[in-house]
């Protein structure tokens, strides 16, 4: 087994009197594709928001370990941009691209936390800044090639088709050089062909050395793609295991199909 890069212990998130996440444990190893599933409102996106610093969790700890340097960091209270800088990037369930910027520029924004030039560099454009800018363009372009959007590089992001916008979200996240990529329902609204391409893309991303943690409702995608699956219901983890184990887990079937179905099946 490879090293743990993400370790979540007892993560709890309260909104007023409502407990959205209840003492959740989860881990991701380097080079793994892990899926997080659960019925609507189970707390999956809340979990992502806690990980990426958009929410500050009520309780529990999140430990991120870089596979390259072995440096461990506790994420509690860190700002979202700091967490991205550490090497964990995400996409959004409701697409949040910069629609008035070009496709390439969207990816270039992802390079922001890996580049340095500021006011002085912008105004005087010394050699260093020019090299950095060209490097940003080149890398961003390569990422667009990888996700198959290089032909639309100079179009406005808002003009892309739905499926392409989802892929651009992934490209933008990849540009931040993450070792762990969080995908929030990457296949939502995609047609079967686009979904098949997406599965292929996620595999390639994994092969390039990024671990992937994804939320998804498309069970076919989850079962074919992931190494391990975590199941959430009402903010609690009700099961974890390989796709095969999850497929026959009684608690999971109950959560998805309801009590009655299970009773009918057993009688």
């Amino acid at each position: 087994m490879m090293s743990k890069i993400l370790e979540v212990n007892g993560l709890t998130m309260n909104f007023g009197g409502i407990r959205a996440l209840d003492h959740l444990d989860l881990d991701v190893h380097a080079g793994e594709i892990v899926a997080l599933i659960g019925p609507n409102g189970a707390g999956k996106t809340t979990f992502f928001n806690c990980l990426t610093g958009i929410y500050v969790p009520t309780e529990g700890e999140i430990r991120l370990t870089s596979p390259l340097t072995g440096k461990q960091t506790l994420l509690a209270g860190l700002k979202p941009n700091k967490i991205t800088e550490l090497g964990m990037a995400r996409t959004f369930q409701n697409i949040r691209l910069f629609s008035q910027m070009t496709v390439l520029e969207n990816v270039m924004i992802g390079r922001h936390c890996r580049t340095r030039s500021l006011i002085f560099g912008a105004i005087f454009r010394p050699r260093r800044t020019r090299d950095e800018e060209q490097d940003t363009v080149d890398r961003s372009y390569r990422i667009l090639e990888k996700v198959g959007l290089s032909a639309q590089a100079d179009e406005f992001a808002g003009k892309l088709s739905y499926g392409s916008q989802r892929r651009l979200e992934i490209a933008r996240a990849l540009a931040t050089d993450p070792f762990l990529l969080l995908l929030d329902e990457p296949a939502a609204g995609m047609n079967p062909q686009e979904t098949a391409d997406l599965v292929d893309l996620i595999r390639r991303i994994r092969d390039d050395g990024h671990a992937v943690l994804l939320i998804e409702h498309d069970m076919k995608l989850v079962m074919s793609l992931s190494d391990r699956v975590f199941v959430l219901d009402y903010g609690e983890k009700i099961a974890q295991g390989t796709p095969a184990e999850i497929g026959v887990n009684a608690a999971v079937i109950k959560a998805y199909l309801g009590e009655d179905m299970l009773d009918e099946e057993s009688t």
Binding site: N81, A89, H112, A122
Partner: peptide, 25 residues
């Protein structure tokens, strides 16, 4: 300034603050 890393970050900030932060700005 417009054509720089900083200028792009400003426009991105105008478009979507949350996404901007999540992208490391």
């Amino acid at each position: 300034l417009q054509d720089s890393r900083l200028g792009r970050a400003w426009v991105a900030l105008r478009e979507d603050e949350t996404a901007c932060q999540a992208m490391g700005i």
